[in-house]
């Protein structure tokens, strides 16, 4: 990673967990956080809180690097390595956004409903542009169904019921994860039976997503 980030640019990045003072991270650290976020996003059935700062910082970095790479000597073998590294970083950002995009598209009506009900002050799980997309898509799809189908039905059935399109994340899907910070979780094994499991740093586990979903966003566990 150091190659493309050799300038050691410092990117201001506000740490989400620490409201008191902004944390200063190097580009390499930001990239690492984005990489972890990307892996979590890929493996989790639900949409995770957006890495707004990391994404914007990395997009800015890509722009700088793209400018730099043009000025390099084309015959130098390092230029190609630079370019490949740049491609890799771009791939991670694009793949991160794309993974989220497909989840948002699939669960569009459910997410739209949740966004509408979200109390003021609570953080959204979507990027701003994702919400705009979601709104447009849900509206267009609903319009299409109303126009082609619902309007042709008998009058009492001419209602668009959003609850019929509610695709929810599969929270009981199993996930692999590595423990980053010591934790204990309660896992339901039947309707009224729970077992407490100690998660020790460095351990690998395989369990239902719902048991650890609250730990993923905080970074206490890393999905793999």
């Amino acid at each position: 990673m150091e190659i493309s980030l050799q300038d050691g640019d410092h990117v201001d990045d506000q740490d989400q967990d620490n409201d008191e003072e902004p944390m200063v991270l190097t580009s390499a650290e930001v990239l690492l956080r984005l990489e972890h976020g990307w892996m979590n996003e890929k493996m989790s059935p639900d949409v995770l809180p957006p890495l707004e700062q990391e994404k914007d910082a990395m997009l800015g970095q890509i722009k700088v690097m793209e400018r730099n790479v043009i000025t390099l000597d084309k015959k130098d073998v390092r230029t190609d390595i630079h370019k490949l590294e740049l491609e890799r970083i771009k791939y991670i950002v694009v793949s991160y956004m794309r993974t989220r995009f497909f989840k948002v598209q699939r669960m569009s009506f459910a997410l739209y409903e949740a966004e509408m009900k979200r109390p003021r002050g609570e953080e959204s799980v979507l990027f701003k542009e994702e919400f705009t997309f979601l709104k447009n898509l849900a509206t267009r799809t609903a319009d299409y169904l109303k126009e082609t189908l619902i309007s042709k039905m008998p009058p009492i059935l001419q209602k668009f019921e959003i609850k019929k399109f509610r695709v929810l994340p599969q929270m009981d899907a199993f996930v692999f994860f590595r423990v980053v910070e010591n934790q204990t979780v309660e896992v339901g094994i039947s309707i009224d039976e729970f077992v407490t499991i100690d998660l020790e740093e460095g351990d690998l586990h395989f369990m239902r997503y719902e048991a650890v979903s609250h730990l993923v966003a905080g970074g206490a566990v890393q999905l793999i």
Partner: peptide, 24 residues
């Protein structure tokens, strides 16, 4: 429109999500 909007606040002009489908 969505792809054009990505990162528009951070002075970045969009991201084509249909590119970079495979890791390079």
């Amino acid at each position: 429109n969505y792809m054009r909007d990505i990162g528009v606040d951070g002075d970045f002009d969009g991201l084509d999500l249909t590119e970079h489908m495979e890791p390079p």
